[in-house]
Design a protein around this nucleic acid. Sequence first.
DNA 1: TCCTGATATGTTTGCGCTAACAGCCACGGT
DNA 2: ACCGTGGCTGTTAGCGCAAACATATCAGGA
Lengths: 339, 339
Amino acid sequence: MTKPTPDPRHTLTLRDVSEASGVSEMTVSRVLRNRGDVSAPTRAKVLEAARALGYVPNKIAGALASQRVNLVGVVIPSLSNMVFPEVMTGISETLDGTGLQPVVGVTNYLPDREESVIYEMLSWRPSGMIIAGLEHSAASRAMLARAGIPIVEIMDIDGEPINHAVGISHRRAGRQMAEAIIAAGYRKIAFLGTRMPNDFRAKKRLEGFEEALAKAGLALVDSEFYSGGSALLKGREMTAAVLDRTPEVDFLYYSNDMIGAGGLLYCLAQGIDVPGRIGLAGFNGVELLDGLPRKLATMDACRLEIGRKAAQIIAQAPATSQVEELFPTLQPGDTIRRS
Amino acid sequence: MTKPTPDPRHTLTLRDVSEASGVSEMTVSRVLRNRGDVSAPTRAKVLEAARALGYVPNKIAGALASQRVNLVGVVIPSLSNMVFPEVMTGISETLDGTGLQPVVGVTNYLPDREESVIYEMLSWRPSGMIIAGLEHSAASRAMLARAGIPIVEIMDIDGEPINHAVGISHRRAGRQMAEAIIAAGYRKIAFLGTRMPNDFRAKKRLEGFEEALAKAGLALVDSEFYSGGSALLKGREMTAAVLDRTPEVDFLYYSNDMIGAGGLLYCLAQGIDVPGRIGLAGFNGVELLDGLPRKLATMDACRLEIGRKAAQIIAQAPATSQVEELFPTLQPGDTIRRS
DNA sequence: TCCTGATATGTTTGCGCTAACAGCCACGGT
DNA sequence: ACCGTGGCTGTTAGCGCAAACATATCAGGA
């Protein structure tokens, strides 16, 4: 148990299996890949030898020789916010039957980091790339564009995709929520969200939201931003801050469900009448909300479906660019007055 | 925008950069890897040519030639439960300076899937592997043992590692929590947890927990298991079920914080005196708890630290096996009576 | 002057595998 | 008998790069 390798031999190659089973390397290769015609007895011999030796093929050599790599790069900003794991689920599900395999890279919302993650991934010559968002550095776009593989930008369709895109219009989502809120009779509306300058989708939602408010002759009466920390806790704190600073506020629009949930718990604890005195809404439709004492209004971001569709596009590698718009549904929950 | 490749040429190789800059492929290779002596003017010429062409090195070829791959395989059961993303953070953080890069594989707690993920990863000849848990199929253990690379099994140290291990003793964690609960005077204790037969760590915590109860002459008065769905919601439902079925219960031990949080919200909503009438505790120490109206008792699983230490071991590739035991701290929160 | 050694660049080779093709054999039709 | 065909296996070449070694160039010392 002192050395990782229990035996002193070199790492195994096709040659070892070939010698052990008495056939050529090529035949071994064919057996292990289920390609071409190999007689049943030969196949059995080879499989047995491979199993006995504990042979694991070297995909690096295989990929170099065949010029094919069964990997799909997936570049996302974060794993810790509930939304991308679900996208990943959709991707994995769909890729599962195809022989393709996702490889995840995380950028932490940093454009520089995104660029280097993309570069690193492309250097492995994947069969396709799935990338969150439409905003990338010029260098990133150039690399992706000339990689010669299908590129799918996901989550957002408000912009010009490099190749394919699958997502929702966040601007429209913001607008729709604003319209619903106004229709329910709320007028003193505040926004609470993330400060991150690179969360373009949150920014677009806010733009759409304000646009719809403006159309109704309204403007935000207050806003509050945060970064880092426990989103649930930040939701409480920001809510407290806004209610304290702007007591007349009658609606709080959160940029994500997690801070919305924090706000909801705070309001309930304070005995505030929700949705009578104050209405609340978030964004994402995360599963977590189901467990809350009251259902937060939100808007489903179609995460699973986005993952599935993106993976489908990669798997099919269509010749022409596709932009798939998905349409989120507004879930009024119990935190917007019924009109 | 119809074809992914804007230009008709083949994909670039070192040769293209070499021709464009008028030096040999080898010199280009040296420049791009910062290896060996290259004069400043040559370096500049090469970099400029590479940039202008948009050259992205082919790591497949590089890895085959150099027999070195800067990837570290990370095999985890799930991304959706808050615990592994944090482990990943620790791993990424630590690997960042080393030139190594994590590649994640997800098993969904399925041993078969774990085996194929491991096989797939090993076939890319990574520099090391980090794997959650100590329980693997015989084939998996064999593959890992003879891969000739550092293997770190994380989260748990109650068992025999293949090579290195970093984690906590879940059995001890369960025991400690039971002792704290008993010391606080609770006697009618119930367990609520996941049904998943392959969550060995939860199982070990329960074993340790029951062992300590037995030592105090106690036994669980009830238990409830779930699988799938929104953990927060399941926590509410299971709590309701247990309280209904076993009204005399005075403590609820949850196998994770998420269902614990659901239970806590339920108890508060029911106006139950926590921790007077009923005490509650979870496990993991997730950030989410900070945002709850009352702090759930829990036990930190040292996730970040586990990720860091595991990555350190891979980076150093020590000759001898290491087992690093970390010691979780019990956070009594507000849901256990102060003795 | 020649030699030494450092610096800078080029050449050869092969990593482990698979595409493409070549060979071999048995069988059946004519 | 001949050829063709299909099933099975082997041979050759090369994927793109980097390790190891070879070569050129030049400064400085003996």
